[in-house]
């Protein structure tokens, strides 16, 4: 099977419409949350964010 055929076969696949919508939203949300938490934690640890 050539590379083009493989890519074509992959792009033809899809999950159900529900999962096609919900999965990217869930992944993006978790990435934003974990990035935010890490920035906050590092900010507090480095003393850049005051904690009172």
């Amino acid at each position: 099977m050539t590379k083009e055929t493989k890519i074509s076969k992959n792009s033809e696949r899809s999950f159900s419409p529900f999962y096609e919508k919900i999965i990217p939203v869930a992944i993006t949300t978790i990435v934003i949350i974990i990035t935010g938490m890490l920035v906050l934690t590092l900010g507090i640890a480095l003393g850049l964010i005051p904690t009172g």
Partner: peptide, 25 residues
């Protein structure tokens, strides 16, 4: 979340995609 994204991008193993999202959450 990386595993979930890889499975989703390839549109394979839906159960692993969902499972990994739940594990991350």
């Amino acid at each position: 979340i990386w595993s979930a994204w890889i499975f989703f991008r390839k549109r394979v193993l839906l159960h692993r995609t969902i499972g990994n999202i739940l594990i991350a959450a």
